[in-house]
Design a protein around this nucleic acid. Structure first.
Lengths: 145, 145
DNA sequence: GGAAATGTCGTGTATATACACTTACGTACT
DNA sequence: AGTACGTAAGTGTATATACACGACATTTCC
């Protein structure tokens, strides 16, 4: 690869996505600092809350996350008592449920998340922000097919 | 946070970015499978190659990555002999340089990366892909200011 | 010339991410 | 009943990510 070929650095979809994800995650983490939750944990907890009781594999699909990654990510939240993982009827399955403590933690964190979200939208502008979200969803949809 | 409030899951900029980043990184990793490099390593090596010899902190800024993260990410590449980290004139500084072996590894991986990139652009369409990249760069620019 | 401030870096710790492999359960077929 | 296949999940291993802290080098300022 010639030294002058910038495409793999400047144009790589994957690298650009990760780069932006790092920057934005730090931005949200800054706001969530005093919530006791990181962005990743807040997202996971919120997703689990909305989903209700749900097997690990299905929740992993929702999050576009490897199943084994989810298993590890559940650990700290489970330790904190924010969610529960219990066997289902089918004893192969383990179901994830947000505990009342988990819901309370979400309630506490929500305003901080909202503050970050608002600042983000202000910075980007409503228009551009909406477009970005559409693009991201579009990407995921394309990769599923 | 009410159970019906989907905004923190469906609309969170941070969560959506990470989600897309996971999906796309896996997509690129699939293509890079036989290169011996992961997406992250390929990007880092490519960035270091383009940058030439450069201190860790400066390279970290280029990559919008925490300095200490970069330090850890350099390890496997250094172990493989793909890059070198050496003290500079200013003895606080440690300079990163891609070795000839590293350049060779980039050459070998480049076609696989290009294949993923092409498939990606095909899937999204030129128009939408360009728009996505602009959005991502826009986000990073906004966060710097 | 020496103290104080600043700049560059590594490590300890904790979480996030995913692949390969294994284990255990359920279902269908004979 | 028993085998074969498929499904759900955990673990081992390796890398990615970042914060708090401390070590050491340079610069600044008296």
């Amino acid at each position: 690869m010639a030294k002058s070929d910038l495409s793999a650095t400047a144009m790589c979809t994957s690298a650009n996505l990760r780069k932006a994800a790092r920057a934005v995650t730090q931005f949200y983490d800054e706001s969530l600092k005093n919530s006791g939750l990181k962005s990743t944990q807040f997202s996971l907890l919120a997703a689990a809350s909305v989903a209700g009781t749900m097997p690990i594999t299905r929740l992993a699909e929702e999050m576009a996350m490897d199943r084994t990654t989810l298993t590890r990510n559940l650990k700290p939240l489970e330790t904190e008592g924010l969610l529960q993982v219990e066997p289902g009827e089918d004893r192969r399955v383990r179901n994830v449920t947000v505990t009342p403590e988990g819901e309370a933690a979400l309630e506490r964190a929500a305003p901080m998340w909202r503050e970050a979200q608002t600042r983000m939208i202000d910075k980007l502008g409503d228009e551009r922000w909406g477009e970005l979200l559409r693009q991201l969803q579009s990407v995921r949809r394309m990769l599923r097919d």
